[in-house]
Design a protein around this nucleic acid. Structure first.
Lengths: 214, 214, 214, 214
DNA sequence: CATGAATGAGCCTTCATTCAT
DNA sequence: TATGAATGAAGGCTCATTCAT
């Protein structure tokens, strides 16, 4: 009130950013437990105390990191799909989206960071709600494509839309996990596209067999 | 002190077994990093030194554990399939196998142990070659079913048999990973069966579209 | 910016009071080391910097807190005794005062705050001169009662008045310490009254033995 | 079994002792929170890991320290009293015991260590059961003296024996606390003896007034 | 083979205080 | 006066592995 805190705020934001960036860098290489707060602040060139001024805990920082990453990716996907015409066949959209996801995961996020997330997710190191939350934008994207495809008769399935959506996301996570444990011999994009073609076939031709009992 | 080789061997084997069993028990509840060598030897009632007599490292022990578990599971699957007639439709066999896998994973191995494996796999805590190895019996099982199905025209795919097999295994791993991060709200068997019906559809009806470009 | 000394003073006093009150509240629950400056300013809704504007250190604040508490208690005791007639027997006055002290300690000050004081006192966390100072009003109160009692022959002792006074205060502190480490199974008032009856007996009947050597 | 572990055990005991002694030394000077595990192991010349081989925690070590100290003191008191004839007057025994306690507390245990205990006790830093436990040998000693004194008519009191015993111990603790916060101007032995003479008077002459209400 | 003491690096978090604005 | 970012030392505890006996 008495003074203009803009400079102070800038300074603070700068410090926070340095910590954030250093962490991002380190987590791109090593997993949650292998990256110490010490190493983060050292790289950031700030004091350890500063870390806890800006982030309540190491977990919280990683949360923020992952959350931002997820949002950024989802924004990418959304913008990407907006460039397509609404009449585009569902199948095309699905494959295009998968391709885009592959690009983002492989090139933008990268192997190590992705692995860190998948590890953290299963290790309960941090709260990865943001990643698995069914309300993530990406679920909506898949859901919309599927819905339109079904409405237009391009796709067919006796299963509820919501279940199909979850299945597709599960497929992506499965591919990503496989990539994480098989890299570098595993070509993410190629495998993802082939795999999804298979799935799309299944969606397109709901033979009577779906009523059979196992 | 008279040396009796036989007794000694028996003793050694006994010690090793106690360690092994205790570890198995502990890893069924907690993850690799949460189970300490101390806790293992305490439960086994042997000394810490003994541990390193029988296992070169904690990782090595977990290796053995996982390897055995994999072999045991694969044996289960193999025996299970042998009870089916060779003429059984590929689709039926696939679904039956998936159901069996679900049963083994959920009931025999169990959530915590499975999670330990999946975590260890992605965390590079241990060498999980045995799990991901393409020579695992289970790959052969899937491959055989697919091969027969294709030969008999029940299934169709322009994709190489080996790729399809890998895809199915990747699907299973994806489901399992999803289970690991979503339990208990995720019903493994149900989701697995529904998901595989989708995949089988895709395998059965290779529409022309599979030649389209994305 | 027009400088208005009055407003500024009011503001300052207000800020100081908020810090003071919050601290009082927190120290009523947790001990010196468990209450952080952070928690105080957070509860007070002021900045950390403000804290150090009004109090040179955490210790100084606690000093003020304790000092005020002591003064307040002593005022209570003084007023309480003023309501008694001067001719009241010394024994009655002593027991009445002890009862009053028990009430104030237990009900007005309360267990946690009292414990904080006793802890701080022995831990040298803060300067607790005000509590132990022989010039505290309460010493004078006890001294007066004793003096009158001795003068009127109700009490007898070869020991100097000043020593007796110190002994009584030491007794109270002893009871309070015992209460601090035995609560809640220790009934302060009951034990205090019984204990003082014993002491008063000793004061009343100075047998020859007081000259004996141990 | 195979080997004679005597040497090993000796070595271990030696290490434990070094830690124990260093801790004893440090706690004689500084309080629980001011003595770090680091400082203990440094003085002991052993590794930090060793500390936790021999003691589960810092608290546990202090527990052991205090417990030993208490036992040692109580043994001193017991042996001391055994040197007295059973016919010795209760009053003499009580004063003799107080004098002995004063000697042990002041000369054997010492101011700083005593303070550490009293601080730890009220700060809940460690479990000081052993100190306050009503089953401590010292309670029995006081109880026996009182009982005999009452039986022989030397002492008189309408209060239960157990309560009187607790009162005496509370008195000692009160004196000790006062000493802790007033040293060095407070002469423990002198004050203790004078104070107990007062108490003993109260015990000897239970005037009718003990039935009065306050 | 069995034992278990010893190691020592490593980690997250807390906190009172300072000071530029 | 008020602010709040920055500091950096301190501290308890875990754990896989080694090695002399």
């Amino acid at each position: 009130m008495v003074y203009n805190g803009t400079n102070r705020k800038r300074l603070a934001e700068n410090t926070r950013q340095k910590i954030y960036d250093s962490a991002m860098h380190l987590f791109s290489t090593k997993s949650f437990n292998k990256v110490s707060v010490d190493s983060i602040v050292e790289m950031a060139g700030v004091s350890k105390g500063s870390f806890y001024v800006h982030f309540p805990s190491k977990s919280a920082l990683v949360n923020a990191l992952i959350s931002d990453q997820v949002q950024s990716a989802d924004t990418d996907y959304t913008l990407f799909l907006e460039s397509f015409s609404d009449d585009a066949p569902a199948e095309d959209l699905l494959l295009a989206l998968i391709g885009k996801i592959a690009d983002v995961v492989v090139d933008k996020i990268g192997y190590d960071k992705m692995k860190t997330v998948y590890k953290a997710q299963i290790a309960d190191d941090v709260d990865t709600q943001t990643v698995t939350n069914y309300n993530r934008a990406i679920y909506k994207l898949f859901s919309d494509i599927l819905e339109r495809g079904i409405k237009r008769g391009e796709l067919n399935s006796s299963l509820p839309l919501e279940l199909l959506t979850r299945h597709l996301m599960m497929a992506i996570r499965g591919i990503t996990y496989e990539w994480c444990i098989r890299s570098p011999e595993f070509n993410y994009k190629e495998e993802a596209l082939q795999y999804f073609k298979l799935l799309i076939e299944g969606l397109r031709n709901p033979s009577l067999s779906s009523n059979r009992q196992m």
